[in-house]
Structure formats: C-alpha cells, structure tokens
Design a protein around this nucleic acid. Sequence first.
DNA 1: GGGGCTCTTTGTTCTTGATCAAACTTGGGA
DNA 2: TCCCAAGTTTGATCAAGAACAAAGAGCCCC
Lengths: 231, 231
Amino acid sequence: MKNLDESLLVHVPPFRKLSRAQIRDVLDLAVPKRFDPAALIFEEGMDADRFYLLLDGHIRVIRTTEGGDQVIALHIVAGQLFGIAAAIGRTTYPATAMAVDECLALSWPSDKWQSFVSSYDGFATESYKVVGERMGEMNNRIVEMATQHVEQRVARAVLRLINQSGKKVEGGIEIDFPITRQNLSEMTGTTLHTVSRLLSGWEKNGIVKSTRRRIVVTDAHRLVVLSEKSA
Amino acid sequence: MKNLDESLLVHVPPFRKLSRAQIRDVLDLAVPKRFDPAALIFEEGMDADRFYLLLDGHIRVIRTTEGGDQVIALHIVAGQLFGIAAAIGRTTYPATAMAVDECLALSWPSDKWQSFVSSYDGFATESYKVVGERMGEMNNRIVEMATQHVEQRVARAVLRLINQSGKKVEGGIEIDFPITRQNLSEMTGTTLHTVSRLLSGWEKNGIVKSTRRRIVVTDAHRLVVLSEKSA
DNA sequence: GGGGCTCTTTGTTCTTGATCAAACTTGGGA
DNA sequence: TCCCAAGTTTGATCAAGAACAAAGAGCCCC
C-alpha cells in the first residue's frame, strides 16, 4: 500500500509543481485500487467521501434519468482527477462513474482536498483548470445539442474521442477503448439505430472502419467536414 | 466611486463571512457600473480582465455559433458573481454577457481573484459552490436535451425561470424580466414558432397567461406535470 | 464446439417539430 | 396620431430521426 512510486505523479498536471517530498506525502495518503471493466466506482447521489486520480484505463461518467435513459456526460482518461465533488462544494457525487476497461486509480478522502489546496502550490490552479475545461466541454455540448443535427453531433463525438483517446493504427486512428453504438447514442442523445446507420454510411464512404465495439477513423478530415456541415 | 455602502455586500453569499473592514476593502477596489437593457457587458473570446457581481437586474449569458445561431447558456440574477473566468483558469470569457433589463454591477480586475481567495475566508468556498451549481445546471440541461421532448424542455425552462426570478402577481407567478418566445427557443434548442404554439396551447388550458414579452404561470403544478411527462 | 448473450444491421412506418409563408398585434417614437 | 419595428400567431408542408420489428454476427463460457 505504501510503496507507490513517486514517478506516478510527477507528470500529472495537478501535482506537477510539487517537490519530491510533497509527492511522497500525497502518495502516502493515497489508496490505490483496480477496477474491472464495467465496475462502478461511485454512483450518483452517493456521499462524496473520496476523490480520485485515474492512473490507467478509461472511466465513463454517466447520468441516469428517472425514465431509465442513460446519458454519458464525459470520459475520463489517465492522468485526470475525477469525483472532485469536494472542489465545487458538493457533498454528493453528481453522476455515476464506471470503468470502461481495466482501470487503476488512486483515491484520497474528500476532506483532504482543502489541505491539498492550501498546502500545495499550483494544485488548486491546475485542478480548477480541469474544472474550467470540463465546463467548456459541457457548454459546447449544449450548444451542439441545441443547434446541430444528429449526424454532426455523432461526428463530433467521435472526433472528440479520438482526440482524447486516439491510438494510431495502420490505416487511421482508433478509439482505444471498447465503445458500442449504444454508447455513442448515449453521448449524443440519439438511438443506437441511427448511430448504426450513420457509421454504416461513413464506412461505405471510407471515412471510418468499424467492427464490434471498435471504431477506426480512416479519414478524420472528412469527418471534420461532416461535423461542420451548415447548421 | 468610493462611497459604496457596505450593506451592499453583507448578504451576498461569497462575501457573507467577511468582516465589516474586509468588505470595506473589497468595495474600495470595486468599480460600479450601470448597463442599459441589451447592453453587452463582455463578449465571448474577449480577454477576461475583470470579474463581476450583479447587484440589480438580470444578465443573459449567450453563446453564438459560427452559423449565427444563439444559445442562451444561463441567466444571472442579482447577488451572483459572473465573468469569473479567472476562477477556472481561463484567460478569455467563454461566453457573451448581455444586460436583459437595467442592471447594476460591481467589477474587479481579474488579477484580484487570487488575493480574494487567499485573503478572505469562505470566499473561495462560496464561489466554487456557485461554480458547482452552474455545472449541475448545465449537466441537467444536457440530460434534458438528450432525453426529453420539446414541450418538456420548454416547460422546464419556464419553471426554472420562475424559480430563479419569479415575482408573485395576482393570479400566478410572473417571470420578472422581459422574455420573448425567441429567447425561450434559444434556451431550449427549438424555434420561436414551436414555443409560440406551446404557450398558446398552455394558455388555452389555463396553465399560463402571457402577453408580449411577459409570461405569468398560473398553474405551476400542471406545468411540472407536463415537464415530467414520461421520457 | 455449441449455446447464448451482446452487439449490429437493415427495413418499414410514423411522429415530432422544423421550415416556409403570411398576417396580425402592440407599443414606442417621430 | 400615425407609423413602424419588434414580437406573436397560425396554417400548410416536409423531412429527420424515432419507434417498431427482425434477423444476423461475433465472442465468451461452459
């Protein structure tokens, strides 16, 4: 438990400005944990007792409506903080976090947040920058949902995924975690049927290539064009 | 300029915990300004050199797409901070702020943000609570847009407005600033035509009563029912 | 190596709400 | 007082995408 290597945090933005000794202190307070694919890390409404740093894997942040519809709010990639309800004055988690693939995360008790902010220079700044980026992303999604058609929204969602978690493969860029048409529909507010038809169409035009749970973008440029097609 | 009364800030959340002397200091740094209806306070992309506190009136926060569509992100009511790009590590404003009616606001240079946070206990906590609330609202809107029909979205938008800025009048609750069908459509991602038809329908059913730029909700309960109608 | 679960595809029909098109109303300003 | 701009209503048509319905395909586990 106590032998986490300091190199883990050296390159992670919120901790980048900390000294070796400070990182040691932070790590000594951290609890590492592994999650299997589809494991729930915390659920919407739960008491927000810990905050997390994802070291490896991908996390999906989900909200569920009373009607049972799921909406994917965002994906977290390695190196990002999540579950930081404490940072924005919340006592419960606003959404559910689920491991997409095998994940490794560190966590700390939420009541440590305050002391991190005051003890470690740069920690607050970097963390709130993350908050700002997420707000920006959310804002963009609202604008998209309000003004764009389904095809453009799905195109953007795919582009965002390859930007955040794209892996170069021969013939294009692959989303490097498993994702279904259903998932994509939950990110864009449409149905899996419509997403399936869109992907089939794009595949016919040589823009993407996809198999079960995997998507490779072969012509990102044309996807960008699609995503911008007149409002 | 220097004779702002301290009572202005005593009941405003971010400053609530400050001493009389501290409030004096804060006020001495503040620049008050009045804005006419429809005046732009700052625009998306502008250098975020100041942050604001709205003392009176209503502000509309707007994003405009390349295609010229406008989306209303949120409304700010008296007592709220806005333009707090500095708080989330941004150097430009992420959206445009426009006065809806006659407004009075205080503003401070953005570089004072850091010193406010460190000098005044409770300021950071309260401010980030506001950030958290806005994130929650944005999140809800994303979920709504993804899962609900237009009628439900418009109903919710109206309910939100009367919650935030409702004024009791005989016969119901009125949204206490001027708002057009067009505005409502920009809040919900639909067209003014559809909003007009919905409002006409509701009026026929005795749920609302509206004239040019004014909306009175006469039966909030039934509006809630409408807004929840099966996903 | 088969069974079953999960994911995907594809066809058809139907509904919502956008788009197009005008006319009407209201209130402020010349 | 009249005019005009801004805001509102209403009708008709149309298209995007949801809903309904099945059938296929890939993968994991036994």
